[in-house]
Amino acid sequence: MSTLLEIRDLTVRIDLPGGPVFPVRDVSLRIGPGETLGLVGESGCGKTLTCLSVMGLFGRRVSVESGEIAFKGTPLDPKSRADRARRARGMGMISQNPMTGLNPVRTLGWQVAEAYRIRTGSSRRAAAARAVELLDLVGIPEPRRRSRDYPHQISGGQQQRAMIAMAIAGEPALLVADEPTTALDVTVQAQIVELLSRLQRDLGMGMLFVTHDLGLVAEVADRVAVMYAGRVVEMAPAAELFARPRHPYTQGLLTSLPFLDDEVERLSPIDGTVPSLRAMPRGCAFAPRCPHASEICRTAVPDLSGAVACHHPLAVRTEAA
């Protein structure tokens, strides 16, 4: 299988007044054309920063410490102008909060047309026409009229649809969706997820779908990567991950989920909290909270050989067991 996006041993550094921190460590991910990779983890585990690194959106203090990101087989240089353009043409991003992601003083039509025009270099008139088509494509009713509206005039769900229209303008090969439904009402969430899946199928895009919602990931992702404290701790096809989690953290996440048909009376939350970036344990970051932790867990970082980064992966249960 050819690779659309490949992240190799990415470590991201943030320079803070008290010294640098590394919220993303040695992350390796790959996404094939048309494939959806789910990236799951609690808030603060480095999901969003991974997305921003893929998009090349480094702020004033953020930089790539080591590792590389390759798009369609060619590494991207964060500082190169040509690579910036290549990235912009090939990738679209949907961020968490459409309210703040849209420019409040520009019409929806202007913003979608702008995204299309920058990526394709088309004429103003063609871009405006395409913007209306795109708004229609993402399911905004009366797209011609809505294209003259400002972001504050439409609902949160419609705003997210407009953001999606901007992200897919110019038909990028990769869509980076950073918690696209977190800020939305539950009823709207399902619609947006459905829309994303449909667009992805129709346009043949690869998708990096970031969420903390395991239920959502089960629905959309082909493969799932679980992140904990800046590292990928487990990676598996979606069905397999949910059926047979191998990392204690993944299992913890799953048993802390309420399932309606579950016989368990009480949910079992994971004890303890995520370690802070300043006080990362020497060994496995999950060791302090892990029921299976042993001496080696506290001294050596387990690497992600195969599918799970754990010294004591849970046994693969057989049907008999």
Binding site: M55, L57, R84, A85, R87, A88, R89, M91, G92, M93, S95, N97, T100, G101, L102, N103, P104, V105, R106, E114, A115, I118, R119, M163, M166
Partner: peptide, 29 residues
């Protein structure tokens, strides 16, 4: 520092375009 400037950056808008077409109309208020 607003999110929509990140959106413009992700689209690949040039620095000049970001400043004068995306940011300045907001700052003008």
């Amino acid at each position: 520092s607003r999110d929509y400037m990140r959106t413009a950056e992700a689209e690949g808008a040039s620095r000049f375009r970001q400043v004068w077409w995306h940011a300045f109309p907001n700052a003008a208020i």
